[in-house]
Every structure is written in structure tokens, then in C-alpha cells.
Write a protein that binds this DNA or RNA. Structure first.
Length: 979
RNA sequence: GCGGGGGUGCCCGAGCCAGGACAAAGGGGCCGGACUCAAGAUCCGGUGGGUGCAGGCCCAUCGUGGGUUCGAAUCCCACCCCCCGCACCA
């Protein structure tokens, strides 16, 4: 942890005091509560509500802080800003946490104890809270409460009256309405769907439910079970590569495992006993008739459905009866396991004897090559097995590696050979699915699901399998009508940073069926099928609309059961007759109308800001559902996105123990420091690295600001404006007013980092420069200048460091809250590019002199003569050049030569143009008179910087020029002579 | 694997879409100087290499290699490496 030095710690302490003070005052004055006001333009900004399963960290805070900076900016811009917040409790994780705590799971209890301890000191109280976590609602309520406190102590300007959770009955009514309407529009569908499943719990399982689920990725893999006829039965052999069926030479079974003869969906199948049990969960009807050892099948034959070839059934030790059907077909040309197992049987009499294999059956088995691929022989399995020196089918790891290699190579680069029937000649990558579909179409294959990795276990201890849910509800994003609407919505939306639009577009392409309900967890029940609970991303697509009315629902005591679908139809869509709805629901007509008005005032969402991780799911659904349910005028306008946060170069994670919780920020650092750092550290599309060293440096800059500000305030009231301004003052005012313009443009285009750089760091630096430039400026003028910029500066900074700015505003005697002041506009009168350029010339000249001193190293130098301002026509050349877009020498010269006066100077013009192109003369230079004036005025400053006596000469009439340097003077580049 | 994004100086990080004023903003670190008894803080200067007793010149340089162009960190192609997403996890 940082050790701040004493002055830093003192300053931080002061900051925190100020932050608490203003948070209290804002809250008491209800400054950020927004009500419809037809006289003002509105701006509706949302950031996703947090999921309340634990504390937030500085990564989450980045997103919310950016949202707040923008909300504050827009508010000062004169918009009526609605920036609300709610809490997400829907779904399985919170339920799962509760049940784990209930069942006494040590790890979870420890983890949650540490979470609670972040917020609560009293050990007894911690235990009480922890015990309450056996109810999921209490987990949700606890974290909703502490997170909202975190947000308040970071100074977020949220309208808290509209807070709700997704478990509130009013919200349930709202979601119910959505799903009824989606169903009516035909956007829901039903069908079979495979899920990871715990037979013991009777439920689908998610990452949270799987033992070690956060350490590896568990997925569902699809095998193709191929039916090999065996008299009246089918031996069902499974493969991940159905296209290799053409190269099958035999069948492998595990001789020691138990197999069954079972009626599966009316057919008699022979499969492993273990697989028969699992198939019951995959929407198959299974009746087991007979059990026997795998060895009993050895030597019998079955028929390959693709070519009628008779294949012998042979034993193999590598076959797992627990994987898919426990039966595999052997393709020794292309599958390393098969190749090795076959060769072992052929070459090892002991093994044959042990497994009871008749040598005659196997001596005629030869690999059948069916795939051609560059870089391998006809028998890739043999190639790889030899290369890796594999000799036994029990060398599982090596064989799996070999299999992966061939699978990848053949899938991407292989072609089916001529012996593959109608699939001959096509790429393997295509053949795989085509063969599968072809077989399934003929009733010769089925899909068998398996977990990967295998086995995996539920936290309850049971083995997880794949189950097929027959009646899963889906949101059908593939619906062409719906998709078209969503595309229209996307196309008219602004996405920033622009690079992420592509990801939206790609997602829109592939998004199809999305399971939208589950059998467990928290949430809203599907209104037309109460067994199902609407899943957490599906219930969070248009909830921004709910913010517009929830506070009024609460205030007026409307009950959830009064919130019928007709109410929402009216409020959100303007459908139906309010009198009638009022009669049915008992909600007052005027109240109904005011809900409608409020929604109509705020909608659409003007900006949704969030982290990029949400693009492929939440944000896509957000757009789809708005497009489905609302008319185009209520579709969202813009999305902005930011990347995440790492810490000291490393990703934050529980296991590393390097997560910095948001709650620590206002305690160990400060809200404003955090805000300033997190916004400034990187652009939106760049990952922010939270580095203590850099945080500290930002803290020092914040303190510089604080000191300068208080120094300015300490001088009391502003002195009168001087009649004549020094060049230093002119420069500061120009620089500052330019900064207002730039900062505003940056915020308008969501360039938050540039905004902070311009309005905070650059102005801070400018004041430093000003103070050095102002050696000859009278103190009253300096004081006036600094005081002049001061209140506008505070306004500029209010969005990012609202507490500090608000405090200084108050100390300055500002009226009301700074947070509600008008955003500053630049004072055009003070913007003077020539002065800014002239100062640049002066600074550059100082550097040049230093450079020369460094090179000549002559002792006893004490004077510098500067020859400023060559002939006026040279400035004219620069002026013409600066307005030329082209950079080609001859074109530039032609442009310049258009001027008859310049043409007179012929060759000299050409060499000047060349000097500009070469960068020896700056292209943008001040007017001659101003350049001269700047040097005259700043002579003492230059002298002070260089430690030399300075003499300024007009280059066109130098009084003293022993080295003839006056003629080397160029616009923006005085001649220099040091002696 | 598929899809997306990126690789900039000792480190972080702008610039790239709209090629030219780019040895490349800003911050950090480091070096030198000022201040100080000293440390810290603060302020000033420097920070690719070489070279020069006049502000310069030469070489290298924005992942690597090609290309387009009078001109490329910026555009095109190939390769290498890194990050993110891939849905029932919110």
C-alpha cells in the first residue's frame, strides 16, 4: 500500500473532508434529482446497474465515473439530465452464493466474510450479516446498499429516488409486460437445448455451480452417434469426426466395461451401460433389456451404413465406456488411437490372447486413406505416431496430442478423397457437418452430447452431465423482421469509440436463438409458463424505461398487481384509454397520464455508457428489445464504451489478491483523486493500468492546483481590469480561452482523457508559464488575470473533480452550487493566435540560444543579440504557405509566385519556401509586428531564462551586427549572435 | 479454432480513420542544475546513437519483412507476438 508523505497525507485528509461535506450538501439540497421540465432540453444517460453479488472494484468504477463526468458536463451545458441507478439481483449467482453459505461451504463463507468486513467493523455484526446471507435477498440487499454508498462517496450525481432492484414486484410486473408483448410479436420460440446439468439437483448448472468452474472453461461437445446395423440392432458408435466414417475398418469396444441392449426411442441399440443412463437426460426414451460385458461382442460383425462394409468388433483398452456411447469406430489411417490400437493387436500375440482376439480377423485389416493433405502421407496417423514414438494405446497424453494435431491439420487443410461417395473432393471442414446432416436425415445418426472436460462435478458432489431440455424458451433474434428493426436501430446510433461498431455488426449477424429462461434463480416468472424464471440478461434490456416512472409508482403507492400489461402499454406506448385502464386497475387517471408524460419526456436514452464486454450480449439485446417494443423515436441514440482496468500491469483477480475494491478509494485515496486519475490514465478504448506511482503523481498535481487556487483566493477580490494588458497576460487569456473551446469539443466527442489533459494539466502548466513570462507584468495585473480565469476554470473542472471545485467555488463566494452553473464559453475577445505563436517563437529562440551555447562552449559569453522580424514579404510567404494544403515544392512556389510583389524576390522566395518545407522555418508564424513586440516585451524574461544580457534588434535595421546575423533572421526564427 | 482489437522511445500513453510542420504530445522514471545544513517536496534543463567552437549535420527508429508514394508511425500485403469476446456468466 502507498505510503504517502506527510504533506500528501494531510492534503488527502483535507480532500476527504471536503468530499464528505459536499456529498452531504448535494444530497440535502436534492441537486441531482431530475424532474421533467419542458423548458429545458433533456439528456437521459444510463450506465448498467451493478450486479449485487459482491463489492465493486476500481475497474467498475471507471465506467461509472465516466458516466458521471458526462452527466455533470451535460447538466452544466444546460440539459435537464437524468442519471439514475438501480441494482441487478436476477439470476443464479446470488442464489448459488446463498445456498453455498447455507450448506456451510468454507471457501464461500470466508470470501463473503472478507467482503462484509470491507464495510463493517464489528465482528458480531459481521457474523449476523453473514448468517443472513442464507437468504439470497439479503445478499442482494446488503450489496445494493453498500454499493450505493460507494457511489455516493465517489460523488456520483445520481437521482437516487429512482433506485430499484430487479427483484422488486413492480419490476416483475414490468418484465412480465415485456415478455407478453414479445410473445405476441412472435419473437419467442421453444425447442430442445443442451445444457450442463446436475442430475442430483435436477437443474442446469452454471460456472458458479461447477467445482473449479472459475479455473477452467467447461463446455458441451457434440458427438455423432452412428448406427452400425447388427442383425436387428444397431451398434451406436460415437465420433467427433463423422466424415471419417468412410475410412472405418472396425469397431472398438472396451472389453471390460458393461454394455447394454436397450430400446432407445423404439430402436434396439447396443451401447455402454453408462451412456444409456446419460441418454435418458438427452431427450431419449431408454429401456434397458439386457446387460453384458463388452468382451461378449468381440469377433462379431456389423455394417458401416455409408458403404455396407462389414466391420469386425474388436477390443481396445483406450475406449472409455463413460465417453459418449462407449463404442467407437476405428479409422486407423487418420486417428492415432485407432492406428496404435490396431497395430498392437496385429503385432502383439500376448495382447491378442489376453483380449481373446482371433488373429485371422485382424490380419486383413488395413488403414483406409480417405483424406488428402499436404505435408502428410496417405496415413497421417502413422506419420504422427512414428514421429512422436508412440507404441501403446495407453499413452493417452501423447495420443491426444497427436489427435489434436491431425484433427486441426485435416480440418483446415484436408480434402475428402475419391472414396467418399458424394463428399469426394470437398474440404474436410465442410464435409464434417454435411456427412452428419446426411446421416441424420437418413435416420442413421444422432447427436450425443458430452461435457468437456470430462468428468466435471457439481458443488453438490454429483457428476455433471449434458441434458437436453425439450421445451427451452428462446428469444428468437434470428427472426428476420426483428433483426431488420434492430439493424435499423443500430444504423442510426452513434457508437464511440468507432472501432467497436464492427463488433456490434458481427454480433447482429450471428445472434440467433438465445435461451431466455431457467428453472431456478431469482427473477420474474414467465407469465405464460410459470415453471420458468426469466434469465438475467433477458430481463435487463429496456429497464431504462422503468427509471422514468418507478419513483412515482412508489410515491403514489401503486401496488405491483395494479401494474397490468395495459398500464405499461399506455405509459410506454401510448396505447389504450387511460380512463378505462384507471377503472380496471384503480390507478388514478391523472397519475397514469403523469407516468406517460414522464416517460415521454425522458425517452429515448440519449447515451448508454458501459464496458466493452457488454457488446456481444447486453448491448445487443438492449438494441434488439428497444427495436422490438418501441417506435423508432424511442430507440437509443448513442453508446459509449470503455475498456477495463488492471493494476500494476497485472489483471486483478481474487486468486492474486490484488483486487482494489471501490470502497477503499474514498478512504485510502480520495474520490476526486480517483476520478482525475481514472479518466486521465488512458483513452476509452485503452486498458487503464492503475499504477500507484502515477496515482501519486496525479495527487501532486491536484495539490499544485489546490495551492494555486487558494493562493488566488487568498488575494481577495479581483482587482479592476487593467487598461492595457501585457503580452504575458494576453497569452494566458488566449491560451485559457482556447482551452475552454478545446475541452468542450473533447467532451462533445467523448474524448474524456483529452478533456482532462486540456482543462487540468495544460492550464496548470500554462499558469506556471504565465508566472515566468510575467516578470514585467504588474502584480495587480497578474492577480487580475489569474482571477479572471479562475471561476471559469473551476467550472471546467467541475465534472471531473466536483468536490474540490465545489469547495473552491464556495470559498470564492460563488452562488448556489457550482454543479448547477452554466458551462463556460470562450471569450473570443481574448483568443489571439498571433500572441500564442509569438510566445512559441520566443520559447524556441531561448532553446536555440541554449543549443548554441552548448555547442560553442566558449567562456566569457555574457550577451545575446536577437535580430527579430525580417522583411514583411517573408511573413507574407509564410502566411500563404500556412494556408496551402499541398506540400509539393513546385505547387507551393507557384502559389506564392501568384503575388506580383513576391515575384520580385524570385530566388529568395524559392529558398524560403524550401526552408519552410525542410522545417527550418516554422510554417505557422505570428505577424511580424507581434513577433517584434513579443521579443521587446519579454526581453527580461529571456534574459532571466538564459542568464545573459539580451539585446533585441529589428532585423531590417540592426544597430549592432558584427557577425551579420540580421540577414539570417527568418519569420518565427530570429537571428542570434552571442558574445 | 472463429470473430474483434492492438504492438509507438527505459516504462505508461497520445498520434494512425482524413500520409507531409513527427525524434514523435503528456505523465512516470533516470541524469544534470537551482533551492536546502541535509533529505523530501518544488522549480529549471536534458534523456536513440554519433558528430559539430553558431542554432546544424549524419545514421538508426514507431513488432518483423515487403509494397504504394516525391514523402509512411500513419495506406496496402505477408508474417510474428499480445489482449478481448464466443452466449445461459453477470
Amino acid at each position: 500500500m502507498t505510503i504517502f508523505s506527510i504533506p500528501e497525507a494531510t492534503f488527502l485528509h483535507e480532500l476527504r473532508r471536503i468530499e464528505r461535506k459536499w456529498q452531504k450538501l448535494w444530497e440535502e439540497a436534492h441537486v441531482f434529482e431530475a424532474n421533467p421540465d419542458p423548458s429545458k432540453p433533456k439528456f437521459f444517460l444510463t450506465v448498467p446497474y451493478p450486479y449485487t453479488s459482491g463489492p465493486l472494484h476500481i475497474g467498475h468504477g471507471r465506467t461509472y465515473t465516466l458516466g458521471d463526468v458526462y452527466a455533470r458536463y451535460k447538466r452544466m451545458q444546460g440539459f435537464n439530465v437524468l442519471w439514475p441507478m438501480a441494482f441487478h439481483i436476477t439470476g443464479t449467482p446470488i442464489a448459488s452464493i446463498s445456498s453455498r453459505i447455507s450448506s456451510g461451504e468454507e471457501r464461500t463463507i470466508k470470501l463473503y466474510e472478507s467482503y462484509v468486513r470491507l464495510y463493517v467493523n464489528d465482528p458480531k455484526e459481521i457474523q449476523r450479516i453473514l448468517r443472513s446471507f442464507t437468504k439470497p435477498e439479503n445478499v442482494a440487499m446488503f450489496f445494493a446498499e453498500v454499493i450505493s454508498n460507494d457511489f455516493k462517496s465517489l460523488g456520483y450525481s445520481i437521482d437516487w429516488r429512482r433506485r430499484f432492484t430487479t427483484g422488486d414486484p413492480e419490476y416483475n410486473s414490468f418484465v412480465t409486460w415485456q415478455f407478453l408483448r414479445l410473445k405476441e410479436k412472435g419473437f419467442l420460440s421453444r425447442g430442445a437445448h443442451p445444457v450442463l446439468y446436475c442430475p442430483n439437483d435436477g437443474n442446469a448448472v452454471g460456472e458458479d455451480d461447477i467445482q473449479g468452474g472459475d479455473e477452467f472453461r467447461s463446455e458441451i461437445v457434440e458427438f455423432t452417434g452412428v448406427k452400425f446395423r447388427m442383425s436387428n440392432s444397431f451398434l451406436v458408435a460415437s465420433s467427433l469426426r463423422p466424415e471419417t466414417l468412410f475410412g472405418a475398418t472396425n469397431i472398438w469396444i472396451n472389453p471390460n466395461a458393461s454394455y447394454v441392449r436397450a430400446i432407445v426411442d423404439g430402436e434396439e441399440w447396443i451401447i455402454s451401460e453408462k451412456s444409456a443412463e446419460k441418454l435418458r437426460y438427452q431427450a431419449h426414451e431408454v429401456i434397458i433389456n439386457e446387460r453384458f460385458k463388452g468382451a461378449d461382442l468381440i469377433g462379431r460383425k456389423c455394417v458401416n451404413p455409408v458403404n455396407g462394409r462389414e466391420l469386425p468388433i474388436l477390443p481396445a483398452l483406450f475406449v472409455e465406456d463413460d465417453n459418449a456411447t462407449g463404442v467407437v469406430y476405428s479409422v486407423p489411417a487418420h486417428a492415432p488411437f485407432d492406428y496404435v490400437a490396431l497395430r498392437e493387436l496385429q503385432e502383439n500375440p500376448d495382447l491378442r490372447k489376453k483380449l481373446g482376439v482371433d488373429p485371422k480377423i485382424i490380419e486383413d485389416i488395413h488403414p483406409i486413406s480417405i483424406i488428402s493433405i499436404d505435408g502428410y502421407s496417405d496415413f497421417p496417423a502413422e506419420d504422427v505416431v512414428k514421429r512422436l514414438g508412440i507404441s501403446s494405446q495407453l499413452e493417452r497424453d501423447a495420443l491426444e496430442e497427436a489427435t489434436r494435431e491431425i484433427y486441426k491439420a485435416e480440418f483446415y487443410h484436408g480434402y475428402m478423397k475419391d472414396n467418399c461417395s458424394i463428399f469426394s473432393g470437398i474440404p474436410v471442414s465442410e464435409a464434417k457437418n454435411k456427412v452428419k446432416e446426411w446421416l441424420k436425415g437418413k435416420g442413421l445418426a444422432v447427436t450425443i452430447y458430452e461435457t468437456s472436460p470430462r468428468p466435471i462435478y457439481c458443488r453438490c458432489g454429483a457428476r455433471i452431465i449434458v441434458a437436453v431440455l425439450k421445451d427451452q424458451w428462446f428469444l428468437n433474434y434470428a427472426n428476420p423482421h426483428w433483426k431488420k428493426l434492430a439493424w435499423e436501430a443500430l444504423n442510426r446510433m452513434q457508437i464511440y469509440p468507432r472501432r467497436y461498431r464492427k463488433l456490434f455488426e458481427d454480433t447482429f449477424q450471428w445472434v440467433a436463438l438465445r435461451p431466455c429462461a431457467r428453472r431456478r434463480g431469482l427473477g420474474t416468472r414467465l407469465p405464460f409458463d410459470k415453471e420458468w424464471i426469466i434469465e438475467s440478461l433477458s430481463d435487463s434490456t429496456i429497464y431504462m424505461a422503468f427509471y422514468t416512472i418507478i419513483h412515482k409508482i412508489r410515491q403514489s403507492g401503486i401496488r405491483a398487481d395494479q401494474l397490468t400489461p395495459e398500464v405499461f402499454d399506455y405509459v410506454f406506448l401510448g396505447k389504450g384509454d387511460p380512463e378505462e385502464i384507471s377503472n380496471i386497475t384503480g390507478i388514478d387517471v391523472s397519475l397514469l397520464k403523469s407516468l406517460r408524460d414522464e416517460f415521454d419526456y425522458w425517452y429515448p436514452v440519449d447515451l448508454r455508457h458501459t464496458a466493452v464486454g457488454h457488446i456481444t450480449n447486453h448491448l445487443t439485446f438492449f438494441i434488439f428489445h428497444h427495436a422490438a417494443l418501441f417506435p423508432p423515436k424511442h430507440w437509443p441514440k448513442a453508446i459509449t464504451l470503455n475498456e477495463y482496468v488492471i493494476r500494476e500491469g497485472a489483471k486483478m483477480s481474487k486468486s492474486k489478491g490484488n483486487v482494489l475494491p471501490l470502497v477503499e478509494i474514498p478512504r485510502k485515496y480520495s474520490a476526486d483523486l480517483y476520478r482525475l486519475y481514472i479518466v486521465y490514465a488512458a483513452d476509452l478504448p485503452t486498458v487503464v493500468d492503475w499504477r500507484e506511482e502515477q496515482v501519486l503523481s496525479v495527487l501532486r498535481r491536484l495539490r499544485d492546483f489546490w495551492n494555486i487556487a487558494n493562493e488566488i483566493l487568498g488575494r481577495g477580490d479581483s482587482p479592476p481590469r487593467p487598461k492595457k494588458l501585457s503580452i504575458a497576460t494576453k497569452w494566458l487569456l488566449s491560451r485559457f480561452n482556447t482551452a475552454i473551446m478545446r475541452a468542450t469539443n473533447y467532451l462533445e466527442s467523448y474524448r474524456f482523457r483529452d478533456y482532462v489533459q486540456e482543462s487540468f494539466f495544460n492550464i496548470l502548466n500554462a499558469i506556471g508559464t504565465f508566472r515566468r513570462l510575467a516578470v514585467n507584468t504588474p502584480p495587480e495585473e497578474r492577480a487580475w488575470a489569474e482571477r479572471y480565469i479562475f471561476d471559469k476554470w473551476l467550472k471546467l473542472l467541475s465534472p471531473v473533480i466536483p468536490h474540490v471545485a465545489e469547495e473552491l467555488w464556495e470559498r470564492m463566494g460563488g452562488r448556489k452550487f457550482l454543479s448547477t452553473q452554466q458551462w463556460p464559453t470562450p471569450d473570443e475577445e481574448f483568443i489571439d493566435k498571433d500572441v500564442e505563436l509569438a510566445i512559441e517563437v520566443v520559447e524556441r529562440t531561448i532553446n536555440d540560444v541554449r543549443d548554441i551555447l552548448h555547442v560553442i562552449k566558449r567562456p566569457g559569453l555574457s550577451k545575446v543579440h536577437l535580430y527579430v522580424g525580417p522583411e514583411e514579404w517573408k511573413y507574407k510567404v509564410c502566411e500563404i504557405l500556412s494556408s496551402c494544403a499541398s506540400a509539393k515544392l513546385n505547387e507551393l512556389i507557384r502559389n506564392v509566385m501568384k503575388d506580383p510583389e513576391l515575384r520580385k524576390h524570385g530566388k529568395e522566395v524559392v529558398s524560403l519556401v524550401r526552408a519552410v518545407i525542410d522545417g527550418k522555418v516554422p510554417r505557422f508564424v505570428p505577424k511580424r509586428a507581434i513577433e517584434l513586440y513579443a521579443f521587446m516585451e519579454l526581453r527580461d524574461y529571456i534574459a532571466q531564462e538564459l542568464g545573459l544580457k539580451v539585446f533585441i534588434h529589428e532585423a531590417t535595421s540592426p544597430g549592432y551586427d558584427p557577425a551579420h546575423k540580421a540577414k539570417s533572421a527568418m519569420p518565427g526564427r530570429p537571428g542570434v549572435y552571442i558574445e
